[in-house]
Design a protein around this nucleic acid. Sequence first.
DNA 1: CACCAGGCAGTGC
DNA 2: GCACTGCATGGT
Length: 262
Amino acid sequence: MTAMTGNELSLKDTLPSGQCFRFSEENGVWTVRAGVGENLRVLRVTQDDLSPIMDDPFWFGFFDMGTDYGKLREQFSEISPVMKQACDYAPGIRILNQDPWEALCSFVVSQNNNIKRIMGIISRMCGFYGAGGFPTVESLVDAREDDLRKLGLGFRAPYIVNTARAVHDGEIRLDALKTLPIDQARAMLMKVKGIGPKVADCALLFGCHRLDCFPMDVWMKRVMATFFPGQDKDIFGPCAGVAQQYLFHYARTGGYFNYKEK
DNA sequence: CACCAGGCAGTGC
DNA sequence: GCACTGCATGGT
């Protein structure tokens, strides 16, 4: 028997795969920030020694180490040769367990935007509103649109305020998003002006661990049209969101659709 | 200059 | 229901 469990974690394939926006890497040392306001946590870790993750329940859960991704990849690989290729391309990808508010707010920022720029905007928001931690709901409820535009949010500025108010006023109940039937959870989010189906699915997948959500952004539209014409997310089963992440990363960085970003 | 980015709301049909 | 357009901003 080999030591390979099939349940590995690749930092370089997971962190820059467009699900989280507060990390950096220098000389092989990854720094990850997670959590809202006072709940900020900072991780420093290298691929050679993952004990800071494995020994800390918070980061263990954050990287979803309790789920067997090897088994999921086996199932996905049965679907089609391309799906298997996407799994083999970056097997160490995992779906992160982020804070629901951080994920929701981050993906409101993400719309019609690119990952590098999203990271810059969120970093500036954390500095301006969060003193380093991710801005709390309260700090954004009364945010001035003006200030948000100066941070680079553009037309998304009012959307952020709308979202913060909806959470503050109880129209969006973050705890309920984890357990509501998925259609109801999506509907609860999409009542807000500025949250559509794609942002809702990302918030639910990356912030509420709703693995059945299958966000359809420009990359996934290319993937489906090219590799799975005439089909939909149902072919990937109840954990379609995980398949989506393998495909997204494969499409973006695998060289099929002239990748340009950094 | 044009076109794009982990989209969405508004409008017209 | 679907197709089309404007939108802030920065990069190619």
